[in-house]
Design a protein around this nucleic acid. Sequence first.
DNA 1: GCTTTAGACGTAT
DNA 2: ATACGTCTAAAGC
Length: 186
Amino acid sequence: MIKVFTRGCSMEKISISFFNNKDLYFAVAIKDGKIIKSILPKANNDEALDEITAEFKDYKISKDYRSLAKSVSDIYYGKKSIFKKEMLHLNLSEFQKRVLLEVMKIPYGKIKTYKQVSEAIDSKAYRAVGTAIAKNPFPLIIPCHRVVRTDLDIGGFYEGPFMKKEILQNEGIKIKGFKIINLKFA
DNA sequence: GCTTTAGACGTAT
DNA sequence: ATACGTCTAAAGC
């Protein structure tokens, strides 16, 4: 009996499920029953598909996990998250894992600064924390939108600061310009 | 309130 | 070796 593995990838196909309302298209990628990637919402289905499948060559579109995609959209619209770290494939460097698991602890409606995240994992690598968060494979699920700059500017965001601002406001955080004005540190 | 400057550290190339 | 980040702190205007 010979087993063939292709470049260390599992044989298991990745399932892609979507959820959309009239404005935005969400997607999740599932492998072996766990989430392997999520995306920030896109304006149309093609963009969502391109991004969610960017690093996968073998996948299928499925309706099986539509409810998970909807749960991601729920976070966007200011509902509490149902996700647990056990539901995620964390194929990440040790450092990135420490950073992202720390970010995942920030509760709904609260924020932390990059510096606070850094200190919480016993590191002085503020910029590296920013880099690790920038590569978060689970936007919204791992709430990187709740990490802001020390001066309380909301900071950067993959889809731009407007989306980050909107998500934070949906969680009840008050923002003037791009600065947080009602402080709720985690 | 800007803007610049050097610092710190993980990661990709 | 180098360059860059969803950054920070200090110094200058």
